[in-house]
Design a protein around this nucleic acid. Structure first.
Length: 307
DNA sequence: ACAAGAATAT
DNA sequence: GATATTCTTG
């Protein structure tokens, strides 16, 4: 019985998260030279980063290919007032623990069945993040979950040493909701089950997703809904010592940490998209909380120039 | 036509 | 290995 790491790791996993300042250089790397010019953003990427934190050593791409009009619409060639960010190829997205946490958080709030790339992307509210980015990450994340399921329900050896390879380090930085691993066919006794169809219907309105999340932002229970598809029932694994209801509540939803999008010193959030009404940003409850006191709001991959 | 998911490529 | 892109299917 060695669960001494249980209460320890989750208290440290948020400490290891780089400070919000680390996000700035990350975002800058996602700005293409063309985009920087278009937005009049000086490429003076100063790295005031003397911190011992493992900053994402994302090498800046030397150059980018010409804006290839792969849109199939030659008419888009003249993108005078159009956003170049849409046509230009962006550098590879680096999934930092912060981003991954938001990802897991969004998936946890939506539920496995509603956790589709588009919805996840919208809930994450990370400007610049594309559906493709989320889809790719989601694919890998599912493989990771599947791997864990196999190990946990292996039954062959409880002494399964959690040999976390470097590949799992990213995923290990964020707590995995228990219902991700344990497939409970039933447990549909949630009042939020009714919102599920709403989410499906909301896909025409982006703001709905935010509203849903805001509604259930504090309720963390097994949100399961019977799906109409013919998904085989997964044998519910017996109560393995993998699921902890306790830490989930604390890890995902920190009590008293309702950080709404308030007045901040950094107004780097530019919302070119049809900004949702009051509901926008209201659901931002639990951002990564630096132990040193570093809470931020909506993440953005496109920070304006620093003062 | 759009989106999700898997497969494949870089 | 991590992420992007392509391909197929719903």
């Amino acid at each position: 019985m060695r669960e001494e790491e249980e209460p320890s790791w989750f208290a440290r996993w948020e400490e290891q998260l780089p400070s919000p300042d680390e996000l700035m250089p990350l975002s800058q790397t996602l700005i293409t030279p063309d985009l920087a010019l278009a937005f009049d953003i000086p490429t003076t990427h100063h790295h005031p980063n003397p911190s011992p934190n493992p900053a994402p050593p994302v090498p800046h791409q030397s150059d980018f290919e010409s804006p290839d009009l792969t849109g199939g619409g030659g008419a888009a060639a003249a993108n005078g007032g159009d956003e170049p960010a849409r046509t230009l190829k962006r550098p590879r997205l680096v999934w930092t623990p912060q981003l991954h946490k938001r990802f897991v958080d969004a998936v946890a709030h939506l539920g496995i069945k509603n956790a589709v790339p588009k919805t996840i992307m919208q809930l994450m509210s990370v400007d610049g993040l594309t559906r493709e980015n989320v889809a790719s990450h989601l694919q890998k994340y599912r493989l990771y979950l599947k791997r864990m399921q196999g190990l946990s329900s292996s039954g062959g050896g409880p002494a399964s040493g959690v040999s976390h390879s470097a590949e799992d380090q990213l995923f290990a930085s964020a707590p995995v909701p228990h219902h991700f691993l344990t497939r409970g066919p039933a447990t549909a006794a949630d009042p939020f089950m009714s919102y599920a169809p709403a989410v499906a219907a909301l896909q025409h309105h982006q703001m709905a997703a935010a509203a849903v999340a805001a509604h259930q932002h504090q309720y963390y229970h097994q949100q399961q809904q019977q799906q109409q598809r013919h998904l085989g029932h997964f044998g519910s694994p017996p109560g393995n010592g993998f699921a902890d209801h306790g830490f989930l509540t604390r890890a995902v939803g920190q009590p008293g940490l309702h950080r709404m999008v308030g007045p901040g010193g950094v107004g780097i959030v530019q919302t070119p998209a049809p900004a949702p009404p009051s509901t926008a940003g209201s659901y931002v409850e639990d951002l990564e909380s630096g132990t040193g006191g570093g809470n931020r709001r909506v993440l953005t991959l496109f920070p304006t120039n620093e003062d």
